[in-house]
Simulated assay, not measured.
Amino acid sequence: MHAFDVLGDPVRRRILELLAEGELSSGAVCAVIRAEFGISQPAVSQHLRVLRDNGFAVVRPAGTRRLYAVRHEALRDVDEWLERFRRFWTPPLAALATEVARGKRRRRLAAEDNEKETP
């Protein structure tokens, strides 16, 4: 399965978002996904299996629990593929950051001027 086939599913993307925050038990992942997507525990387990089988997640036993974590190597492959497209969004985002910084500076200077004028 191609990486974008795996990541094309919103449930799997959400699971990766959860795992990006740190290792989680399958039960914890299941609880969040069931609440957000309304799917069954077996369906969540299937999504976890797809992530694991395609190298996006790893699992380790911890007593009776199974703990899942992101496997960063698969995401590095996606990042490398996206590299050729970064030129489309990097300059506009940099320009946006500059404009935001200018706006903050203007507001700060205006506030300082108001403080000087108010006795």
Rank of each mutant, 00 (worst) to 15 (best):
G8F: 03
E73H: 05
G103F: 09
S45D: 10
H2P: 15
R102A: 15
L19H: 04
A28P: 07
L93G: 02
A101D: 15
V58E: 13
P61D: 09
R86L: 11
Q41N: 09
M1L: 08
R107Q: 13
R86C: 05
L19M: 07
V6L: 00
P10N: 03
N114C: 08
F85E: 09
D77Q: 13
L7W: 02
G38K: 05
Q46D: 09
A74R: 09
R102E: 15
L16W: 01
L93V: 11
K116W: 10
C30K: 02
R71E: 14
T118C: 04
L18K: 01
A110T: 13
L7F: 03
A35G: 15
L18V: 06
A43H: 08
V58I: 07
D79W: 08
P10C: 07
V11I: 15
L24K: 15
S26H: 11
N114H: 11
R13Q: 12
R49F: 11
V78T: 04
A94C: 03
G27R: 09
D9T: 06
K104Y: 06
A31M: 05
R76K: 10
G55N: 02
E36Q: 14
P119Q: 05
P42Y: 00
P61T: 11
G103Q: 10
G55K: 02
G38H: 06
L93E: 10
L93T: 04
R105Q: 14
G55C: 04
V44R: 00
N114Y: 10
R12K: 08
P10K: 02
G103E: 13
E17Y: 04
